[in-house]
Design a protein around this nucleic acid. Structure first.
Lengths: 225, 225
DNA sequence: TCAAAAGTGTTAGATTTACACCCATGA
DNA sequence: TCATGGGTGTAAATCTAACACTTTTGA
């Protein structure tokens, strides 16, 4: 490879991952105490550096896989964060991504090994560098997406009740919605299929379980909430 | 500065700028023939490298200033483009930004000196590397923003007619809108002020000129189109 | 038997869309 | 005088938001 741009300086590139999960009616993010200097001990996102032989997207996927053991998650880029002094150690430009996971898919032992915790998005602590900005922006992007694309199901088990789905929307958007109006809109989307299965964990009476039919969605992708 | 992250490799970081303008009823982008190898002669966005002593945002502003001589433009990050082989010369990760300018503010001689042209967004040629993807994504982001924030005025002279404003929306969104309905919505926004001035360049009868009152907007920022 | 969550329709109000004609002027 | 773009209102249709009671069942 020729050095076409030899006169320009290179910069350290990292990725930081905002892992969203939904549990106990709350939207949560995986964060942990930073384990290296500088900033050791501060609350931080999980991240990594971009290697010379991987795309930035791949670096993000790899990092999320290291942390969660999960692949093929819904992931989107949040943006590049490039202030000069954003990293107290050295100039590092970071590109952050958010990912959606079903918390039940995440092995709790693996979580503990990485020293990360599920923190309610409404109760974020002070965080290292610009990580709080990253989370704020990721949340905003995710909110916008979840209204127009059927990605909410990535945060739920493959079978879910309508109440679970509603609670998820409420947690993401930060406000309660009317149960009847919500269900009315869900009924119009044929790719959200009612099964004959009943979930009895959430109530005595039990609630029907629904599933997202991806093939049906692809045939008639009209999603709006 | 200590080398905390010494084991990691650095990467060349560039910025690429999508400059949007509105002229003759068309949404246009500034592009030029690439003047350096590799890819010399291919249609390309104007870009630059991120220096060690500037933030990525600053690098983008600087690059846009080099090209246009304009500062304090409305600029937003489009995202990081980080495929390994996106640059045929060497590994370069690029962060793209879009900017909105009033074409009349851009000195045409400066334009020619840089060898860039205003190209209709609907008639983009084949472009260098992933620049077309950048433009597509920038346009999408801009479309979303222009519905909810009063940034359209950045693409127009400070005095404009309602027909100009309407044509701009039509060009950005790619579809015609009803004149009466459009004007009805404009009238509801008090920060779009009618002046007593008449523009006679667009018609024999002449049309009232309007202006965007930023202070009034800040007091009651309810914009929606 | 009662507490707790599941499930179900209607109506008023607000918003959006469709639509057609007269006006002023310069060429 | 006529071609061109400027300017204006109303009504139907659609969408949104508000609202309350019955059901089931385990404790």
């Amino acid at each position: 490879m020729t050095d076409f741009y030899i006169e320009h300086q290179k910069i350290l590139l990292s990725v930081d991952c905002i892992i969203f999960g939904f549990d106990e009616g709350q939207l949560r993010v995986l964060i942990g105490k930073r384990q290296l200097d500088p900033g050791r001990g501060e609350w931080s996102l999980y991240g990594g550096f971009v290697g010379p032989d991987e795309s930035v997207d791949d670096a993000a996927s790899r990092t999320v896989f290291e942390l969660t053991g999960l692949r093929n998650l819904y992931m989107r880029q949040v943006g590049a964060f490039g202030n000069i002094d954003r990293d107290p150690g050295e100039r590092v430009v970071s590109i952050s991504y958010y990912a959606l996971i079903n918390v039940k898919d995440y092995d709790d032992q693996l979580r503990q090994e990485h020293g990360v915790e599920w923190v309610n998005i409404k109760e974020l602590p002070t965080m290292y560098s610009d990580h709080r900005d990253m989370i704020r922006k990721a949340r905003k992007l995710m909110q916008d997406k979840i209204r127009t694309e059927p990605i909410s199901f990535r945060l739920l088990p493959s079978l879910f009740t309508l109440t679970q789905l509603q609670r998820l929307y409420e947690a993401v958007n930060g406000e309660a919605v009317d149960k009847r109006n919500f269900r009315k809109r869900i009924k119009e989307m044929e790719f959200i299929e009612k099964t004959e299965l009943i979930d009895k964990t959430g109530s005595k009476r039990g609630a029907y379980l629904y599933r997202f039919n991806k093939a049906a969605y692809n045939e008639d992708p009209n999603f709006k909430l």
